[in-house]
Amino acid sequence: MNIALWICTGLLAAVALVGGITKTFVPREKLAAMPNGAWTGEATAGFVKTLGILEILAAAGLILPAVLDIAPALVPVTAACWTALMIGAIITHLRHGEHAVIVLNLIYLALAVFVLWGRTVAEPFGG
């Protein structure tokens, strides 16, 4: 179970890091022109960059607390926050009719719920 949780956590962290870097460093206009990026055209540049920074922090929050053994309880907290983020992403993409990306959001949501459950119930850090 621990290995499965680490794999899921690593996948979520990679997704968060790539998404965060993209939102933080790619201009909003380019993001809006990308497939499934129409929502960025309606959001302010500050909002998109803030969301990107939060995703980078989520990547760190999923991995670093456990690896460094400094407040590993932050891992399930971060997974809960990622769950909320994915619910918001699903709603946003539904409003824009971007159904293909919703499948990915549902997968990320399921992974986050698994990590949240796994690190609070099945195999929490420290015992």
Rank of each mutant, 00 (worst) to 15 (best):
Leu64Asn: 00
Thr83Leu: 05
Ala13Ile: 05
Ala89Thr: 09
Ile91Leu: 12
Phe114Met: 08
Leu11Pro: 07
Ala59Arg: 00
Ala16Gln: 05
Ala73Ser: 08
Thr78Trp: 15
Val101Pro: 15
Gly97Asn: 08
Asn2Gln: 08
Gly10Leu: 05
Pro76Gly: 04
Pro35Tyr: 11
Ala43Gly: 01
Val15Phe: 04
Leu12Tyr: 02
His93Gly: 02
Leu54Glu: 03
Thr92Phe: 10
Leu68Trp: 13
Gly10Asn: 02
Cys8Met: 14
Val48Trp: 10
Val121Arg: 06
Met1His: 03
Leu17Thr: 10
Val101His: 04
Val48Leu: 02
Leu74Cys: 04
Gly52Thr: 01
Val121Thr: 12
Arg95Cys: 09
Ala122Leu: 15
Ile7His: 07
Ala66Thr: 01
Leu54Ile: 06
Ala89Asp: 12
Asn105Asp: 15
Leu74Val: 10
Phe114Arg: 07
Pro76Tyr: 01
Tyr108Val: 01
Gly88Asp: 13
Pro124Leu: 01
Pro27Val: 10
Ile56Met: 15
Val67Tyr: 12
Ala38Ser: 13
Val26Tyr: 14
Val15Asn: 00
Gly61Asn: 10
Cys8Glu: 14
Pro124Ala: 12
His99Glu: 14
Leu54Asp: 03
Pro72Val: 03
Leu109Glu: 08
Glu98Gly: 09
Met34Phe: 03
Gly61Arg: 03
Thr24Met: 02
Tyr108Asp: 00
Phe114Lys: 01
Leu104His: 08
Gly37Lys: 01
Leu109Asp: 08
Phe25Lys: 05
Tyr108Ala: 05
Ala71Gly: 09
Ala84Val: 15
Val26Glu: 12
Gly61Val: 11
Ile102Gly: 07
Leu62Val: 06
Ala14Val: 07
Thr50Trp: 15
Ala16Glu: 02
Gly61Leu: 12
Gly97Cys: 11
Ile70Val: 15
Ala60Ser: 05
Thr40Ile: 09
Ala43Tyr: 11
Ala32Trp: 15
Leu57Thr: 03
Leu68Thr: 11
Ala4Glu: 12
Val101Asn: 06
Gly46Tyr: 09
Ala32Val: 14
Asn105Thr: 08
Thr78His: 10
Glu29Cys: 06
Asn36Val: 12
Thr40Glu: 13
Thr120Arg: 05
His96Trp: 13
Ala43Asp: 14
Trp117His: 01
Ile91Pro: 09
Ile53Leu: 11
Pro76Asn: 00
Ala71Met: 14
Thr40Arg: 02
Ala60His: 01
Ala84Asp: 12
Val48Lys: 04
Trp82Cys: 01
Ile7Met: 09
Leu85Gly: 00
Thr83Gln: 07
Leu11Asp: 06
Ala14Leu: 12
Trp39Thr: 01
Ile70Arg: 09
Met1Lys: 03
Leu85Trp: 10
Lys49Leu: 14
Ile21His: 02
Ala110Pro: 05
